[in-house]
Design a protein around this nucleic acid. Structure first.
Length: 573
RNA sequence: GCGGACAUGGUCUAGUGGUUAUGACAGUAGGUUCCCAACCUGCUAACCCGGGUUCAACUCCCGGUGUCCGCACCA
């Protein structure tokens, strides 16, 4: 083994580099912080994590996968609120050169800081706000911190301003009308999308934890807020660590089953509860240590104004507790905002009443014979305004305001008052959306962190990556004990049989001693090794070695391959 | 973004203003051994980038980039 740093995290990162799992990007040119590469081994792991994530959600039946561009026109991100929020105003202190967010500095001096313009913020700043570090108040000019990567669609002057998406979610909101049709116009349904997201972090640190370009996997689940899906939670009998809202009545960490948490009112929304449970399942399935998972509820104060129950799933590792999944009830905020900004009428869903409802409505029926001659070209607008009246005036004549802002006088003969009975079979409403958003790189880091095991073997340090077979880079290693007497050929043959099985990938290694080869595959987390030896030549049996306890058994080749295909090799032991 | 430390083969490191720049591990070729990183021999492979000082810079100075540690930031 090479030199061992005294920090576990250093030894782990060094292994990940050495074995081609995760490495800094563009190192040839000095590297770029916040960007990483997945090497040949890491890319396999990432692919498997992504695939099991997609499989986990699409197997449910009412969730489908979509894919939309990373390049996003500015108007979309204005509507979503990203263009405003991602441009935090920053200011530097002339005394100690510290950088601060203006809104944080003036927090105590103004109640409604969110409503202030940049000019007003600067004005308040110059009233003698002190630097929290050095107590001076010599502030530099205010500048914006753009946390999105901006670009342009079209190379020439007329190019349209755009950004690299900071989340994949907006693409799914754009596809809402298509999804609504796909699901035969019935809620609930969901869409997932995996892909890259981009944030120009001020100071990315901690390796894979804060990246500038990162792998996301997001799910938008559209529901009727008056009829939220309440899947049964009885299948989840294990307790989950919850850290409820510190300002709420349930503050303090607790270990509790998900259905208890829902009935106790800790988790406020039944669909959110279901997503917490399903998220737990996914994480355990890809090999996260269940004792190092917890769900932390956002305090009412830190929650975005539109959301009403948000949970972060945090994983514990070398960097402490890190937020890896955010499960938010975004309510109708996004769809409504896109409806307002785009003017589209397709962002709603239909709610059928159980019983048709009749209503008596007073209406003014326009009289075209009288309106036409009176208003000529504007008559159309007048009729439209009359039909859109929500309150029918008591008396005639009255002033009617048109959509262009002008008003006209409506007299008796221009419209007839009438009571109409209308039967309503349902109504249009804006669906709510529950969004679980997964940071895949952070999850992969914790899979590696939790799997990395340092032991000793005959006084030597020995590392094993105890990856779940669901995410291991190779399913099996095929090792000829000697590369002679035809063992190499038999091994190649076994390998190609493995590789021809759907979804399976094996690796062959015939160099150096057998112990060294076991060590190499242990280090990258290959769960099984098949060794071809002299007996194989005689009877077709091989040694199967289990990574986690180094136990080995003798089995017929065909049996191992069969069990590899069904994921049941462990039953042979 | 600020301050401090650091930057040498794939990994971890030694070292110097001057001619072939250490060592270990890994890799590789051969020998030997054979079910847990054995051994022997050979080989491959590095001074972060740009400028300056100097007869001469991997070494000293400045700038950049990157990493780590604090501060700030993390929607």
């Amino acid at each position: 083994m090479p030199f061992m740093s005294d920090r576990r995290v250093d030894r782990l990162t060094s292994l990940l580099r050495r074995r081609g799992v995760v490495l800094p990007s563009f190192e040839l040119y000095g590297g770029v912080s916040g960007l990483v590469d997945y090497g040949p081994v890491g890319a396999r792991i990432r692919r498997k994590v992504m695939d099991s994530w997609i499989d986990h959600w699409t197997s449910h039946g009412d969730i489908v996968e979509v894919d939309s561009p990373a390049i996003t026109p500015e108007s979309v991100l204005v509507a979503s609120g990203h263009v405003g929020e991602f441009n935090d105003l920053m200011v530097e202190c002339g005394g100690c050169t510290g950088a601060f967010r203006v809104d944080h500095l003036i927090e105590d001096s103004h109640e409604n800081k969110n409503s202030l313009s940049p000019e007003e913020l600067v004005a308040i700043l110059s009233t003698g706000i002190e630097c929290p570090t050095c107590k001076e108040s010599k502030w530099s000019d205010v500048r914006t911190m753009d946390l999105m990567f901006s670009t342009q669609i079209g190379a020439m002057k007329g190019g349209r301003k755009a950004y690299m998406r900071p989340e994949t979610a907006q693409g799914m909101f754009m596809l809402y009308p298509a999804l609504f049709r796909h699901f035969k116009q019935k809620l609930p349904f969901g869409a997932i999308q995996t892909g890259k997201g981009y944030r120009n972090e001020i100071s990315p640190r901690q390796g894979m934890i804060r990246l500038r370009e990162f792998n996301m996997a997001e799910l938008e689940y559209f529901i009727d807020p008056e009829d939220p899906p309440c899947p049964s939670l009885n299948t989840w009998s294990d307790s989950i660590a919850l850290v409820p809202d510190p300002d709420g009545e349930h503050s303090g960490e607790c270990l509790i089953t998900i259905s208890e948490a829902l009935s106790a009112g800790i988790v406020r929304h039944p669909t959110v509860a279901w997503f917490l449970a399903r998220t737990m399942d996914f994480l355990i399935n890809v090999g996260i240590d269940s004792t190092r998972i917890r769900f932390r509820q956002h305090a009412s104060t830190e929650m975005a104004h539109y959301a009403d129950d948000c949970w972060d799933c945090e994983l514990h590792g070398e960097h402490g507790w890190v937020e890896c999944v955010g499960i938010a009830n975004r309510t109708c905020h996004d769809l409504l905002s896109h409806e307002r900004h785009s003017g589209s009428k397709q962002l709603k869903a239909w709610r059928q009443f159980e019983e048709p409802r009749s209503e008596i409505r007073d209406v003014l029926v326009p009289n075209g014979a009288s309106l036409g001659p009176a208003f000529k070209g504007r008559a159309g607008k007048v009729i439209e305004a009359l039909q859109n009246l929500t309150e029918i005036p008591e008396k005639m004549p009255f002033e009617l305001t048109l959509t262009d802002g002008s008003s006209v006088q409506i007299t008796d003969e221009m419209a007839t008052r009438r009571s109409e009975e209308v039967t309503l079979h349902g109504e249009w409403f804006t669906p709510h959306v529950i969004e679980p958003a997964f940071g895949i790189d952070r999850i992969i880091w914790h899979i590696l962190d939790h799997s990395y095991t340092e032991t000793e073997k005959e006084g030597e340090k020995y590392s094993i990556m105890r990856l779940s077979s669901n995410v291991s880079p190779y399913d099996v290693a095929v090792l000829p004990l000697f590369d002679k007497d035809g063992m190499g050929e038999i091994a190649s043959d076994i390998l190609s049989r493995v590789n021809s099985m759907p979804g399976l990938r094996g690796e062959m290694d015939s160099s150096k001693s057998i112990g060294r080869r076991y060590a190499r595959v242990d280090e990258i987390g290959v769960p099984w090794a098949i060794t071809v030896d002299h007996e194989t030549l005689k009877d077709g049996s091989v040694t199967v070695r289990r990574r986690d306890d180094q136990k080995q058994i003798r089995v017929m080749v065909d049996d191992v391959l069969l069990n590899l295909g069904t994921g049941t090799v462990s039953t042979l032991f």
